[in-house]
Design a protein around this nucleic acid. Structure first.
Length: 291
DNA sequence: TGCCAGGCAGATG
DNA sequence: CATCTGCATGGC
């Protein structure tokens, strides 16, 4: 067996906060273990991730000779400092970015990401995580899992969810979103929309494509585009971000969503979506005064 | 207990 | 355009 084939992987890295990143409302399939470790499934790979000082540690279920899928998912090569340098010299944003050094954007699989955000509307993050896990266990393919860990499953394919049917999906506690998820899955499964192609389309075109799907409006479209389709200017505006933008930039006036969207795109620059992630994290997990 | 949650679609002025 | 409402479910 070549020495490069191993179930474990380590990488030295600066400016990466694994826990903040996995727990920032981008991806819903991660389970926090004790001592700051996480387990989840990337594609068809089970992984356990942890961080100590300047190292990311990964443990897979089966030996790997190529970890690029992990590097890609975690965006370990992404130059965070360079991106933050493009932010406007805007005190509230600069402060938010300083509060969460090392918070990155992930690069998820487009279908997994789109589907999980279809489930997200007017649901709390904890509930989205529950429904996500339920869907994986019911309709996802089992993946190799190390002993002493609960059997893991991949996220279900569009075909699997299309075949399941709306009433069955409703059993997974997603309520009225079952119809949206089922229709979206059917469209993707029959090829009328190619999610991978969104990665090379201009942002406005990619948006228009996604919002033709039932249950996908501007917010969910931008989540999928930002978190999985290489669209760093996408700027999802949910209730938290809307509140934050109104408070920080509009003196708490009731500015309508389209106006906020327009403002954000002009104000935050080429990595607007990353700025959004810092503002979101700060709004959702306000940190008590820094020492 | 009631309010609200990483919204959207359809209906009304 | 802008605003309003119904939609399921469950955490706090």
């Amino acid at each position: 067996m070549p020495p490069s084939l191993s179930t474990s992987f380590q990488l030295r890295i600066q400016d990466y906060d694994l826990s903040a990143t996995l727990d920032s409302g981008q991806a819903f399939g991660w389970t926090r273990l004790e001592n700051h470790a996480w387990t989840g499934v990337i594609g068809y790979q089970w992984v356990r991730l942890s961080q100590s000082n300047d190292r990311i540690h990964a443990e897979a279920a089966i030996p790997q000779d190529d970890w690029s899928w992990l590097v890609d998912y975690l965006q370990l090569d992404f130059d965070l400092k360079n991106a933050i340098d493009t932010f406007p010299p805007d005190p509230p944003l600069q402060a938010a970015a300083r509060h969460y050094p090392g918070l990155h954007l992930l690069r998820q699989a487009p279908w997994t990401c789109l589907a999980s955000f279809i489930l997200s509307s007017t649901k709390q993050i904890v509930q989205i995580q529950q429904v996500y896990q339920l869907l994986c266990r019911e309709y996802g393919n089992p993946v190799p899992t190390p002993p002493h860990f609960r059997q893991a499953h991949a996220f279900p394919t569009p075909q699997a969810l299309a075949n399941a049917g709306e009433p069955a999906l409703r059993q997974c506690r997603m309520g009225f979103r079952a119809k949206y998820l089922h229709q979206a899955a059917s469209h993707i499964a029959n090829g009328s929309i190619n999610l991978e192609s969104l990665r090379s389309l201009p942002l406005p075109i990619a948006r228009r494509t996604l919002t033709t799907l039932p249950g996908v409006g501007p917010k969910i479209a931008d989540c999928a585009l930002l978190f999985s389709c290489d669209q760093p200017r996408a700027f999802p505006i949910d209730v938290w971000i809307a509140r934050t933008l109104r408070k920080l930039y509009f003196k708490d006036q009731p500015v309508p969503l389209p106006k906020l969207q327009q403002f954000a795109e002009h104000h935050f620059g080429p990595f607007a979506g990353l700025a959004q992630q810092y503002l979101f994290h700060q709004a959702r997990k306000p940190r008590q005064q820094n020492p």
